[in-house]
Write a protein that binds this DNA or RNA. Structure first.
Lengths: 191, 191
DNA sequence: GGGTACATGTAATCAGTTACATGATTTA
DNA sequence: TAAATCATGTAACTGATTACATGTACCC
């Protein structure tokens, strides 16, 4: 099934992020991918620069991308989707995920284990408000044309940030009301 | 600083999760930790069983836990906090995190790259509603006594689920209105 | 005493992160 | 042409996941 000299690999979210970006831009070097990420999907799902060197290489090895090295000075590697890559992306997007996404929020974990809610809320709120401004600015750029997906995703992110703000405001308020400092982490939790 | 024969390790969220649980329950075997996780913090930050074998071992190696092997039949390993472990946990909880937690939501990533919003929303909503019921039941168990942290964290999780539901409902509605099926993933995103 | 569920671990693999190292282009 | 910045990669490490493998207790 798979042409010789190709490795079977498992496709991760990172893989699809790369495939998806390449579907949008046609072809790109890792550096260009990084730029793309930073001003689009990276606000939702960021990743370190080095992954944008490693992951395309991996995908090319497995036949999802073509890799094409420039001959001149920079000798950049240029990647583009193969048919196989396009199909994989298509299959992926057209299969709805039912899975619930855990928050995995470090601040909530600290809160769970007894951090001072008021201090934590302050730190979180300042960051969240900055983030909200950024998102609102970006949303203003939507002129209603082009694919809706990115904008809807951005809207979802905005909802999330807004809710987080309300949540932490409430937590801070409750914390101040009960005057409880950090609660000791030694009693039992939810039964 | 560090007693001989001990490895320096980096403490990850998983590490603190284990430290935190042990602070709550005193001592435990990996199996008991797993049970604890499943009915408390695991709803917020889950992890595979095997990590609850690997991580305590790692922590013990580095002097954060004592490891104590039973002599009888099961020969279970039993872990408890050392002073060093308790301090590390304390330091961690008392240092507020400002960092923003990305959603890293697979469904939103698919949406971004052109998945059909209506289908995706259906899948997500069914899962989210189940999750909401579970959280509501758990919240009913709060009798107001004991540390507030876990309950506040649960409240935050509930807010998050509720918002997600509203978000996906809106996405589905918009998707139906514009009648747009899955949008092709080939135009440009946020400028 | 045989089956089933509960309990306990190890091994192999690998994606992702951090750190290191260098080359090319522009501008002052 | 020197400095600064932009660009491009590789290497080492390691935490996390998946898969494998076994042992103990209980129940009928």
């Amino acid at each position: 099934m798979l042409p010789p000299r190709m490795r079977e690999i498992q496709l991760t979210p990172t893989s699809y992020l790369v495939l998806g970006l390449l579907a949008q831009v046609g072809e790109a070097t890792p550096y260009q991918l990084k730029q793309q990420v930073d001003l689009s999907v990276g606000h939702l799902w960021s990743l370190p620069r080095s992954q944008l060197y490693a992951e395309p290489a991996r995908l090319a090895q497995a036949g999802y991308l073509t890799e094409d090295r420039e001959q001149d000075g920079r000798r950049r590697k240029r990647y583009a989707l193969t048919e196989r890559g396009r199909e994989a992306l298509q299959r992926w997007t057209s299969t709805p995920t039912a899975e619930f996404t855990e928050l995995r929020d470090l601040a909530l974990l600290k809160l769970f284990f007894g951090a001072d809610p008021v201090l934590l809320a302050e730190a979180q709120l300042s960051e969240l408000r900055t983030r909200l401004e950024l998102y609102e600015v970006m949303r203003g750029l939507d002129d209603g044309s082009g694919p809706r997906g990115p904008w809807q995703a951005l809207g979802a992110g905005t909802d999330y940030v807004k809710t987080s703000i309300r949540t932490w405001e409430r937590i801070a308020r409750e914390g101040r009301e009960t005057g409880a400092g950090p609660s000791a982490a030694h009693s039992s939790p939810w039964a």
